[in-house]
Design a protein around this nucleic acid. Structure first.
Length: 313
DNA sequence: TGCAGTGTTGCTTC
DNA sequence: CGAAGCAACACTGC
């Protein structure tokens, strides 16, 4: 569930569903080692500690920082969830019986929680309204961590993350200064660097660069002021569109109600290899290369390198 | 059968 | 120090 718009869509759903509820039970098979990601979490007994700490706590608020979901509980405890590639948080009503180790839950609603998601639930929070929050994750890369709310933003998980691109104080000046921290970096990789700017991943990087008309291999130092402004606007616009369309379900993203987003229907570059560029009057063809191990898509006509021969292998 | 896949971290090498 | 490349995490779908 991946990038900023998907995480924001999930957070919006959580705000509408679990704020004010009290956690009455917690279950996890934790075979996936969700509870990892910091030194303290390598202890296999961590889940017991986690359960003890969150039990009977009330959900006070839910927020997003980069691609992390932060569930703030009473008593200064925050549950940090990072969904990585394939995680989902799903809110619904389940028959929850931890005694049945193999199949400890059975979805009642919504219908959309049927396969494949219900096979991959690895953690469940139960609330005092007999609803649950299930963490489903096919690849089990997701991360769950408990952090003191007051130390949250200084914690190792969040303290090196760059500014939020959709915040009002994220001005062009700020954007320019951030990307300039990596003058020799390729622009796509710099955009995706969470330490430079928070929340941009593979899909929104490709789509933002398409919109701005910048080649993904272009070095930051070679992008002139006017183009940088265009890129700044493109990033904000692309992320906002992602949120407005309820996220991107190219792969298997679902919101907390199990519903797909629609942004994948709006792609102009991402996974459109060989198709015609949708920019009016352009006539280019979408190309695919690999950059930093990630599939990278761009138009060969309106996204060209300033210095030709300098890169496209 | 093979490869690509929304993310991140850690290791190695230059 | 920066950057780049790669493996690892574990599984599905085309």
């Amino acid at each position: 569930m991946p990038e900023l718009p998907e995480v924001q869509t999930t957070v919006n759903g959580l705000k509408a569903s679990i704020v004010g509820l009290v956690i009455t039970d917690v279950w996890s098979d934790y075979r996936s080692a969700f509870f990892k990601g910091s030194e303290t979490l390598k202890d296999p007994g961590y889940f017991k500690h986690f359960k003890k700490e969150v039990l009977h706590k009330k959900v006070m608020s839910v927020e997003r920082r980069a691609k992390n979901i932060l569930i703030n509980l009473s008593g200064n405890a925050t549950i940090l969830v990072h969904m990585k590639m394939t995680g989902h948080l799903l809110y619904g009503r389940y028959n929850f019986s931890p005694q049945l180790k193999k199949d400890p839950w059975e979805p009642i609603e919504p219908e959309s929680l049927k396969d494949p998601f219900n096979r991959h639930v690895h953690m469940m929070l139960c609330f005092n309204n007999s609803h649950n929050l299930a963490l489903s994750d096919v690849r089990t890369f997701a991360k769950v961590t408990l952090i003191n709310s007051e130390l949250l933003h200084e914690s190792l998980h969040l303290n090196r993350i760059g500014p939020e691109p959709l915040e009002k104080d994220f001005t062009f000046k700020r954007f320019d200064a951030r990307i300039d921290l990596r003058p020799k970096g390729k622009v796509k990789q710099v955009l995706m660097d969470q330490g430079i700017i928070a929340g941009i991943g593979n899909i929104y990087a490709d789509e933002s660069l398409w919109r701005a008309g910048i080649h993904p291999l272009e070095l930051v130092k070679n992008i002139r002021l006017v183009k940088r402004k265009t890129l700044f606007d493109a990033v904000k616009k692309t992320l906002s569109r992602g949120i407005n369309f309820g996220g991107d379900s190219t792969s298997d993203y679902r919101n907390v109600n199990g519903e797909k987003g629609e942004f994948h229907e709006k792609h102009r570059a991402y996974q459109r290899t060989g198709e015609g560029c949708g920019k009016p009057g352009c006539g280019g063809i979408i190309q695919r290369i690999v950059l930093g191990g990630r599939g990278t898509h761009f138009c060969d006509r309106h996204q060209t390198l300033r210095v030709k021969s300098a890169g496209n292998k």
